[in-house]
């Protein structure tokens, strides 16, 4: 049995014009200890998927159909009290903005210890001692003295390390990292990714990494789901998707990443962009390929029907009519 399995998930946002499916018929599975990466532009439903797993959808959103099965239990139907036991304990989440995701009025040690007290029933001194160990594990120098520091006394990278320490505190089986490095310096980004990968590997924790950094995907992920407008455009093993992307959107995302080369004489591929913008919320749910308006290979069929996911030779599945084989 998979650790996490999401089936035919549909999440609707209640808009003035009516419900808009920000997640439409999304399915994927995640095995224990593996890393799954969600990629796509802003507003594609990556974060919404994460919030749905945590049971923390905004007030206007709801799971309209489908199931999210974690360790045999459907998270969409569990009572709130049980969900609170799971959150921070069995599934924990790392947020995008380390600058604002720590509470400014408590020291980082208090905040880590609080998680341990809540879920592990540890008492004051034990919890603080464990907090120091955790800060050490996320490679914060002088963990013993930093445990009494307030968030504003730390740099962005250090705060994100604290967030990771909090996420790890209860040795969860799944960590969801929602763009954990977007707000950080490039050099720090690499460190944080390395840290996440090492810790997840050492503890056997499964990781869902939400990002739009294709480089990070190549480094970190075992499997990839490329999201576009709330639908999975392409999903499969990372090698298949990076080496032989089938969906035009995936190809576009990969072509957007500049490649560094030491030889200035070497032929360099043009850096491309994907023209156009993500379709507006109101047009989601249409029975058509939502990428059609931006696609270079668009044909009549794309406007007439939503492409199902077709199996591709390299092992992934792509939702594009061009992949249809007889």
């Amino acid at each position: 049995m998979s650790l996490l399995s999401v089936e035919n998930l549909r999440i609707e946002l209640a808009l003035r014009a009516g419900p808009a499916p920000v997640i439409d018929d999304l399915s994927f599975t995640l095995e224990a200890g593996r890393t799954l990466s969600f990629v796509g532009e802003s507003g594609c439903g990556k974060s919404m998927t994460a919030l749905a797993i945590m049971g923390l959808l905004p007030d206007v959103g709801r799971v309209a159909a489908g199931s999210i099965t974690f360790d045999g239990a459907d998270l969409t139907t569990l009572p709130d009290a049980r969900l609170r036991q799971i959150r921070g304990n069995e599934i924990s989440m790392i947020f995008q903005e380390p600058m604002t995701s720590l509470n400014p009025v408590y020291t980082v040690g208090e905040q880590i210890a609080e998680v341990l007290r809540r879920h592990r029933g540890m008492t004051g001194r034990d919890a603080t001692a464990r907090a120091v160990e955790l800060l050490d594990a996320v490679r914060i120098p002088n963990a013993r003295s930093r445990v009494t520091a307030y968030p504003h006394e730390m740099s962005g990278g250090q705060r994100q390390r604290v967030m990771i320490a909090m996420a790890l505190a209860c040795a969860p089986r799944l960590i969801i990292a929602d763009e954990p490095t977007t707000a950080l310096d490039v050099t720090v980004q690499a460190q944080i990714f390395e840290l996440l990968r090492d810790l997840a590997h050492d503890t056997g924790t499964a990781l869902i990494l939400i990002t739009h950094d294709m480089g990070a995907v190549a480094e970190m992920a075992d499997d990839v789901v490329v999201m576009y407008a709330g639908r999975a455009a392409e999903a499969g093993p990372v090698e298949a998707i990076l080496d032989d992307p089938r969906h035009p959107y995936t190809r576009g995302l990969i072509a957007c990443v500049p490649h560094l080369t030491a030889d200035p004489e070497a032929a360099r591929g043009d850096l491309t962009e994907i023209p156009g913008i993500v379709p507006p919320l109101a047009s989601l749910g249409a029975s058509a390929c939502l990428f059609a308006s931006r696609c270079a290979h668009v044909h009549d069929r794309c406007h007439g029907a939503r492409p199902p996911a077709f199996d591709c030779p390299a092992g992934q599945r792509a939702a594009c009519w061009l992949e249809e084989r007889a």
């Binding site: 609170r84 304990n89 924990s92 947020f95 509470n103 809540r118 909090m166």
Partner: peptide, 10 residues
């Protein structure tokens, strides 16, 4: 975000 983070921590 720290309120969302606290919620996510149960």
């Amino acid at each position: 975000e720290y309120v969302a983070a606290a919620r996510a921590g149960g």
